[in-house]
């Protein structure tokens, strides 16, 4: 499929331009931090010479453009600098904390698609009847509160009031799992430890659901709106006239064309979840990148701030790239076109 390949190359190019832009933006933001990062790192007892030495080592005395050049050169070698606070390479810190966040967000994404799309489909097929009205109100309620509110409410209901789920953390400490992928749901399975897998699943469910609530609402609303529009098309009428079963009409003829606009928004919702993970991780004491991010921001740890934001943005760009490819694959007009999309 050359058209799809050409699209991939084009999108990849644009993503790289955008990523370069993001790095400049975040580098610019980090450089306007008031106060001397070298002084902050060394503490008040350091001598002037020590501070000057560190300033030189960090290239802080060079013009901003030169500093950015050093930064990009290091970045291309996979070096994000040393965290001024943990005294470890930022890449190591990120490698330690990123999998927990990714696991949480991906699980939430699965919940969002797995619950949101069917809800929207059902709502559209019941258009104007009570299930439709109920789903519309509930999904609007879902998008009407920040995820930390859902996190707190869910925790109160299903961890304290009805103690079904654990309150915090990723897994019960008594399980010792060798770290392979960093995704506990996968690592426990690799270790063949069923009990640990169930335990990790119980830990992740509540935070992931809290994170997914607004995405579920959004996905359901969009799928419904798009499907309602498709239901008015003549080919649906024809399918009905032929006497095709309602379920087949819904799944095959009405849902598929509506999926494409929904997918775009799902990609955006994924971005929102990467941000909202900051809130949910705080509530459930989830040891992920977001908690690390808040910690380094409060300590004005430049390298760590830049690294964290860059990694999160890159993750988001990759997800969007995948979504674009999915759309291209689903849409016959792009799949079969000679010129590629737009």
């Amino acid at each position: 499929m050359p058209a799809v390949l050409r699209l991939l190359a084009r999108r990849l190019g644009i993503s790289l331009i955008v990523l370069a832009g993001v790095s400049m933006l975040i580098f610019g933001i980090a450089r306007v931090i008031p106060g001397d990062p070298a002084r902050i790192a060394l503490g008040p007892n350091a001598t002037g010479e020590q501070v000057a030495g560190l300033r030189q080592a960090l290239h802080l005395d060079d013009p901003v453009a030169v500093q950015y050049g050093h930064f990009v050169a290091d970045l291309l070698r996979g070096d994000l600098g040393v965290s001024l606070y943990t005294n470890r390479p930022v890449t190591l810190d990120i490698a330690q904390f990123l999998p927990a966040t990714l696991e949480l967000v991906l699980f939430a994404g699965v919940l969002m698609v797995g619950i949101g799309l069917p809800l929207g489909m059902w709502s559209a097929s019941q258009r104007g009847r009570w299930p439709d009205h109920l789903i519309r109100v509930v999904s609007l309620l879902g998008v009407s509160a920040p995820s930390f509110v859902w996190a707190v409410m869910l925790m109160l209901m299903f961890a304290f009031f009805l103690p079904v789920f654990p309150i915090a953390g990723r897994i019960t400490d008594s399980f010792e799992i060798t770290r392979v992928t960093g995704f506990l749901l996968i690592d426990t399975l690799l270790a063949g430890n069923g009990a640990a897998f169930v335990d990790a699943l119980r830990h992740i469910f509540l935070p992931a659901f809290a994170l997914a609530v607004s995405g579920i609402g959004q996905a359901a609303r969009l799928t419904r709106a798009n499907m309602v529009e498709t239901y008015d098309r003549p080919y649906i009428e024809m399918a009905r006239a032929y006497g095709f079963p309602a379920g087949r009409i819904a799944a095959k003829y009405a849902f598929k064309p509506s999926l494409i606009p929904s997918l775009t928004i799902i990609g955006l919702d994924f971005a929102a979840m990467l941000g909202n993970a900051f809130l949910v991780e705080a509530v459930f004491a989830w040891p992920g990148l977001s908690r690390y991010g808040v910690a380094v921001i409060l300590r004005k740890d430049l390298n760590a701030i830049i690294g964290t934001v860059l990694i999160i943005s890159a993750t988001f760009l990759i997800v969007n790239l995948i979504v674009d490819l999915l759309i291209a694959f689903l849409n016959p007009r792009i799949r079969h076109s000679e010129r590629g999309a737009r």
């Binding site: 955008v18 990523l19 993001v22 933006l25 975040i26 971005a271 929102a272 990467l274 941000g275 909202n276 900051f278 809130l279 991010g293 934001v309 999160i312 943005s313 988001f316 760009l317 969007n320």
Partner: peptide, 8 residues
């Protein structure tokens, strides 16, 4: 601006 997740 749009490719940095909103809250981040």
């Amino acid at each position: 601006f749009l490719s940095i997740p909103p809250l981040v």
